[in-house]
Structure formats: C-alpha cells, structure tokens
Nucleic acid binder design. Structure first.
Length: 110
DNA sequence: TGCATGACCAGAC
DNA sequence: CGTCTGGCCATGC
C-alpha cells in the first residue's frame, strides 16, 4: 500500500520535470505555481528528495541564483551543470542566472 | 495529534 | 552588496 502523494507534491514533480535543459528555476517559483503558499518553497527540497521519479533537482536553485553547495555530490552536480552549459562561478552562483531563469511564464498563459 | 526538520525566502541593517 | 533574523509551508514519525 503506497501512500498517496499530495497534489502539491505531484505538481512540484511535474513542474520540475518541465524545466528545459540548460535552464534553471527557483524553489519559490515552483512552490508558488504548484499552488503552495508563499513560503512553501521550504518544503520543496524534501519533496523532491522523496520523489518516486527522477527529478532534475540540479536545475532548481535559490532565488538569488546560488546553487546548493555541499561536499560530496558537488562534483557530480557541477558536471551536470557543465553538461548543460550552465556556468557557475567560484562562489557557487550562476553567471547568467537571469537569462536562463525559467519562470514558467510561457505556461501560465495569463 | 503534536513536534521536529529542511537543498528556502524576503526583509532589515 | 554581505550578513543576520524571523517566518511560513508540507512531510514524516
């Protein structure tokens, strides 16, 4: 018996999978579009971590253009970024952050 | 049902 | 522009 995933989680996973290659988005944007509250971004991380499907979480970054810098998987992530032509400086910040930022505005269709 | 946790964010200074 | 603080949200046990 598997536990049912919440609507919010499903949307988060779907949105994450919709991020084009070579583009990035932020936790806040996903949280907002997924229907969560303003600060729902705080739970995005754990949701992605528990996703049954593979999620390109390396394309999800902080609102200031910084990426999650940790010790072990760092090299692996950096390789993914490099593979997608996403440039990151020494401080772990995306160089053309505003240019490659994907805010799903083309899907919202206001 | 209640409490602790997290790969966050916006505002202040 | 760099650093610090408070807060709100969904999950899991």
């Amino acid at each position: 018996m598997k536990k049912q995933a919440s609507i919010f989680s499903l949307k988060v996973w779907e949105l994450a999978s919709l991020i084009p290659r070579g583009r990035v988005t932020t936790y806040g944007i996903i949280a907002r579009i997924a229907g969560g509250g303003g600060q729902a971004a705080r739970s995005i991380s754990s949701i992605l971590d528990k996703s049954p499907n593979k999620v390109p979480w390396h394309r999800i970054v902080y609102s200031d253009g910084r990426v999650w810098t940790s010790n072990e998987n760092k090299r692996e992530r950096m390789r993914l970024y490099k593979k997608e032509r996403i440039k990151i400086d020494e401080n772990g910040k995306i160089e053309n952050f505003k240019d490659i930022l994907y805010d799903f505005s083309n899907l919202i269709k206001q």
